[in-house]
């Protein structure tokens, strides 16, 4: 595990998501008991009450649920200043019950639209991703 400072602010149960991405895997949490997909990850299934959580591997493929093209960033995202303008996405993952993960789009934007099919590339830790390994998305050619 890298020694980077982990970001607070979420539920705080997504460490295995980041560790998987460092290994080149996309894993989403799922209740071991009732099989409900959980994203963001949690420590307990609010549906059935189980404390047992599985991390299931899925393919890094999905569709653009929504997107924006960013032309400005605040001080909090200063590392992205040089990338402006850039496109960020919410990607819907059909293999994880429609869970939506955040990501950055790379490559050709010609077919960028809600519903476009995207595939993820595993990217190593960078300053712009605050030291985290991430999945960067591109639109599939036949979209």
């Amino acid at each position: 595990m890298s020694s980077i400072q982990r970001i607070r602010g979420g539920i705080g149960a997504d460490e295995d998501y980041w560790l998987a991405i460092e290994r080149g895997e996309l894993r989403i949490s799922r209740c071991a008991h009732c099989r409900k997909w959980m994203w963001p990850a949690n420590v307990r299934c609010g549906d059935c009450g189980s404390w047992e959580i599985d991390w299931e591997r899925i393919e890094p493929v999905g569709t653009v649920y929504t997107w924006t093209r960013n032309h400005a960033v605040s001080e909090v995202l200063a590392e992205r200043q040089a990338d402006l303008p850039y496109v960020t996405l919410l990607v819907e993952l059909p293999q994880a019950g429609g869970a939506r993960v955040a990501g950055v789009l790379e490559g050709n934007e010609e077919h960028l639209r809600i519903g476009a099919r995207v595939r993820g590339r595993f990217a190593g830790p960078e300053e712009r991703s605050k030291g985290y390994a991430t999945i960067v998305w591109h639109i599939e050619e036949d979209a």
Binding site: G9, T66, W67, T68, T88, V104, T134
Partner: peptide, 27 residues
């Protein structure tokens, strides 16, 4: 933003409010 933004947003160039709101409005 610094105190209340989940990791998946900050590492992907998305802050607490602006970009997330813009994406919601697009939809």
């Amino acid at each position: 933003t610094q105190n209340d933004t989940p990791a998946q947003f900050l590492v992907n160039g998305i802050d607490m409010v602006l970009q997330r709101s813009a994406m919601r409005t697009r939809r």
